[in-house]
Nucleic acid binder design. Structure first.
Lengths: 149, 149
DNA sequence: CCTATTTCAGGGGTACTGACATCG
DNA sequence: CCGATGTCAGTAACCCTGAAATAG
C-alpha cells in the first residue's frame, strides 16, 4: 500500500527536528543553487545587502549576511572579477575596503530577484502562503536564538 | 534601541524562506555535531536505522537515511573500524554487504539517543512543544515533496 | 599595546558525480 | 546486456580556524 518499508526512514530520525531541518534545508538549497546558474547564494546575499544599504565594508557585509569573513573575501573577489561590484579603499580607514554594486551588478540582481522568487514557489510548493509565513516566523525566532546570545 | 542597523540583514534575505531554512539549519547542525563528540550525524542515522530495522545492505541504508552510497561506504567503514558495527558479505547476493550493529554499537547508540535528545532541547529552546510539532509537520511535508516526486 | 579589518592558507563535514568492477 | 551494488577518486559549496599584515 504505502512505501517500501525497507526504504522508510527510522522513526528516531523521521521525527527528529534537527534532522528534518537539515535534510529539508539540503534539498531546498540544492534546488535554489541549481536554479541560480552561475551564481551562488552567497553572491545573491552580498548583492542584496549592497543594494539595500549601499556601499559597505566587507566586515559589515559579513555580519549582515551571516557569512564568514573568508567567504566574503572570496565571493567579493569573484563578483568583482565579473564586473558586478567594485572594491575600493576607504579613504578614511585605509585598512578597510568599500564594496559597491556596479550598474551591471544592479541588473544582475534584478534578474536574480525574479529567479529567487520563482525558486521559492518551487521549493515551498506544498505549503500555503499562511503556512509559509508561519514557517518563516518559527525559523526567524530560532535564528534569533542562535545568533543573538 | 534595537540592533545596529549596519548589522541588520537585508529585507530581501531576512524574509526569504529558503535562506531562513538554510541559515537556521547551519546553526542547528553545528550545535548538534559539536554535541555529538566523536560521532557525526551520519553515524547516528546509520546506527538508528540498523537498530530499528535490523541488519541491512548499504544500499538500503542509504535510501532509508537519505544518504549517498559513497557516504554510506565511508561511514560504515569508519564505524566498523571502531567495532560499532560489523560488515559481512551476503551469502545470497555476494555483491552485497550486510551491515549489523554490534553490542558496542547498541551501547553507543543508547548514549547517542540521550545526547541527541538533549541537543534538541538546546537547539529548539525558543519553541514550545506545540510549535516544535508544527514545525516538524511543515518540514515533513516539504521533505516529502522533495523526495517523493 | 590593543583592537578591528582584510586577506590567505588550510581543514572538515556534507552532497554529489563519474568511473569501475562485481554479481545476479 | 542490464541493473543493482559496493568502492574509489575527485569535485563543489559551505563553515570554520589560525595566522599574518595593516591601520586606527
Amino acid at each position: 500500500m504505502t512505501a517500501d518499508p525497507t526504504e522508510t526512514p527510522p522513526r528516531r530520525l523521521s521525527g527528529l527536528p534537527s534532522r528534518l531541518l537539515t535534510q529539508t534545508a539540503a534539498h531546498v538549497h540544492r534546488l535554489v543553487t541549481h536554479g541560480l546558474g552561475d551564481f551562488r547564494t552567497h553572491h545573491y546575499a552580498l548583492m542584496a545587502a549592497l543594494a539595500e544599504a549601499g556601499p559597505s565594508s566587507q566586515a559589515v557585509l559579513g555580519r549582515r549576511c551571516g557569512m564568514d569573513r573568508s567567504d566574503v573575501t572570496a565571493a567579493v573577489t569573484e563578483l568583482a572579477s565579473r564586473g558586478l561590484l567594485r572594491r575600493t579603499v576607504d579613504p578614511a580607514h585605509r585598512r578597510r575596503n568599500i564594496v559597491a554594486l556596479t550598474a551591471e551588478g544592479e541588473n544582475a540582481l534584478r534578474e536574480l530577484d525574479q529567479r529567487v522568487q520563482r525558486l521559492q514557489d518551487e521549493a515551498f510548493a506544498p505549503l500555503t502562503p499562511t503556512e509559509r509565513a508561519h514557517l518563516a516566523e518559527l525559523l526567524t525566532r530560532l535564528l534569533d536564538h542562535h545568533t543573538r546570545p
